[in-house]
Design a protein around this nucleic acid. Structure first.
Length: 305
DNA sequence: CTCCAGGTCCATA
DNA sequence: TATGGACATGGA
């Protein structure tokens, strides 16, 4: 019996990898900031706490040849959890995407051609959880990324679900119900601005009531989904496109206002100024329908070099 | 010290 | 419809 349960705990979930796929490039992206509180990156694997079917699964994600393997460290997979975990990592690593037409379209593009070769197999790392995506877009507004990660860290380590494993705590992003109960004072003590506090409470509230949910957004065409997101106080054009890119996984979403994108373009072109709105619009038209993927690849240049 | 970070809202004209 | 200021904090 003990050997049987041990065997269950060791059972791996196997997923076929798309071609091309580079786990290494994906790990580089996941490892971009040392204040990240929602996963831990190792040389050949990433460890992440998942809440599936109401239970915590500390999951080790690794790749062999053409397969991705998921091992749960603290319990045995149930059938339902196995399915949910598969969906989760499929979204996280954008495994369903066929990148052939992206690479074909960009291969001769001055700004992108080299990147499609240098980062070949890099997938857009997504947010399977809509609430997390919205919160992160609000937190990231206007402030530098290191500070944004620290703001997130306080929220996550205080209110996320947690699991202690081999001397360390692992966390999930808190759910909307929990965040909607956090007082304004507490946010302020954590150095959240008054507006970020309001926006987060508002987003949490709308998720709790169900007026905002991933399923209905996923059913909408990209333009309609972005319009719906823009109705939310605190979600402007940048955030709406960011969420459409990283959570709804629309490759044509384009956070044109993103200063990181501007910086990356400036560095690559050697220009003395950041690109103008007109230049960005022109690039957007040229990259269509892969603006989001192009943006993601350009972001990647900022962490690798 | 000043300027700017993976922006957005609100007041004012 | 367009533009300017406020926002919290930290790094360059």
């Amino acid at each position: 019996m003990t050997s049987e349960s041990h065997k269950n705990t060791e059972k791996k979930i196997w997923l076929p990898l798309p071609d091309p796929f580079s786990f290494e490039h994906c790990l580089d992206f996941l490892n971009r900031n040392s204040y990240e509180s929602l996963h831990e990156v190792h040389p050949n694997k990433v460890i992440k706490l998942l809440k599936l079917e109401g239970q915590l699964y500390l999951t080790e994600i690794a790749c062999w040849e053409k397969m991705m393997g998921l091992r749960c460290l603290n319990r045995a997979w149930t059938t339902a959890a196995e399915k949910a975990a598969t969906q989760y990592v499929t979204m996280l690593f954008d495994l369903d995407r066929d990148l052939k037409s992206f690479y074909l379209q960009m291969s001769e593009e001055p700004l992108m051609g080299d990147l499609t070769r240098q980062f070949r197999g890099l997938r857009m790392i997504g947010f399977p959880d809509l609430f997390e995506a919205l919160c992160w877009s609000v937190i990231g507004q206007q402030i530098n990324l290191s500070f944004a990660y620290r703001l997130k860290q306080r929220l996550v380590t205080t209110y996320g679900s947690k699991l202690f494993w081999k001397g360390k705590h692992y966390y999930t992003f808190p759910d909307p119900q929990t965040v909607s109960g956090i007082s304004e004072n507490e946010f302020r003590n954590w150095q959240y601005s008054a507006s970020k506090t309001n926006y987060l409470q508002n987003v949490a509230q709308q998720m709790v009531t169900g007026s905002l949910n991933l399923e209905s957004l996923q059913r909408m065409p990209t333009e309609a989904a972005i319009s719906r997101l823009l109705e939310i106080k605190g979600i402007g054009p940048w955030s709406a496109h960011y969420v459409a890119m990283k959570c709804l996984r629309r490759p044509e979403a384009f956070p044109q206002q993103d200063v990181g994108l501007h910086h990356a373009i400036k560095l690559r072109t050697g220009a003395s100024e950041k690109p103008s709105t007109k230049q960005l619009e022109k690039l957007g038209r040229k990259w269509h329908p892969w603006q989001g993927y192009a943006t993601f690849y350009l972001w990647h240049t900022l962490i690798v070099s």
